[in-house]
């Protein structure tokens, strides 16, 4: 703080402090504390607010733990988000390696330009694109039938299949870019040294490149998992009747039941899930928060 004062004077320091304070306190910390507090309050008509019934309780959370359906939706959301994260990693890793160590330098800007286009197209349109492609009488089935690969049209949007396809497509780039950044910072000489010393290609990856890519893997996994578990668009557009996502239940509490307090308890569970995931990843990959965020 003293350093700040010396460098920028009283007026500017005050401006910086007020702006930062407004952001951290008013936009981040207080709303989350409020969310936490309200998740323990009962849902009451306005007249009874502040009355004898307006006391803290665990009821909203018990609603969740007493509902086998909600628990199973929660568990499946976690399982399938983790699956999506793994699939994204498997798709993105060879590509990140190729882009950072194999491909011609001159082509990179053009390749990245092409990759940035789907990234900047909004999520709702990207899931809508797959909604069209995966339709029973859509182009995918038509071309597969035409090529003779399948006999009958496949019902792609059944179970969690449509959701997984959509989530992988929508979020794979959030895995690719951190991985690329991490692998790019590895000295190519290290890879060559490993090869000169007789390491087979898979061991070079396992012992040299993957360990170096850890911050990228951590960062990509956290982003993909968080975005998948918190996705609203993809599960709504590409879900079948028997694949429900946890965010859809939160929406139900907020919009259909208008019970904001139970809604905030459920939102808080989602927040806990993501926090736990971030801390597990930080522990497993031994990385700091500053490695994960950018």
């Amino acid at each position: 703080m003293k350093d700040l004062l010396n460098r920028y004077g009283l007026l500017l320091t005050t401006v910086f402090a007020v702006l930062t304070g407004f952001w951290i306190l008013v936009l981040v910390v207080l709303p989350n504390i409020y969310l936490f507090e309200h998740s323990f309050k009962p849902y009451l008509p306005v007249a009874e607010l502040g009355g004898p019934k307006d006391v803290y309780s665990l009821d909203n959370y018990l609603t969740f733990f007493r509902s086998p359906i909600h628990i199973s939706v929660f568990v499946w959301t976690v399982v399938y988000s983790a699956l999506v994260t793994v699939i994204c990693f498997l798709i993105a890793y060879p590509l990140a390696y190729y882009l950072s160590k194999v491909s011609a330098r001159a082509l990179l800007p053009t390749i990245f330009l092409l990759l940035f286009i789907p990234l900047w197209v909004s999520e709702v349109l990207r899931s809508f694109a797959w909604f069209i492609i995966l339709a029973l009488k859509g182009p995918l089935n038509a071309s597969l039938l035409g090529l003779g690969i399948i006999e009958d049209p496949v019902r792609w949007i059944s179970g969690f299949r449509g959701v997984i396809i959509g989530l992988v497509y929508t979020y794979v780039l959030f895995m690719l870019f951190p991985l690329y950044n991490a692998i790019q910072s590895l000295d190519t000489n290290q890879i060559e040294a490993a090869e000169d010393l007789g390491a087979p290609w898979w061991r070079t990856h396992w012992r040299v490149i993957l360990p170096h890519a850890k911050p990228g893997i951590a960062s990509g996994s956290v982003m993909v998992f968080m975005l998948s578990a918190g996705s609203i668009l993809v599960p709504t557009l590409l879900a079948s009747t028997n694949s429900r996502w946890f965010t859809e239940i939160i929406q139900q509490w907020m919009f259909e039941s208008q019970d904001w307090n139970t809604g905030s308890a459920y939102a808080f569970l989602l927040l806990i899930l993501c926090t736990v995931f971030v801390s597990v990843v930080m522990r497993v990959f031994r990385v700091k928060l500053s490695d994960i965020a950018k």
Partner: peptide, 18 residues
């Protein structure tokens, strides 16, 4: 950096409630 790692639904709901 916490808001980047927070699901949008949670940010939306907490802002609304607050």
């Amino acid at each position: 950096v916490a808001p980047i790692l927070t699901p949008g639904a949670v940010i939306g709901i907490s802002t609304l409630l607050f």
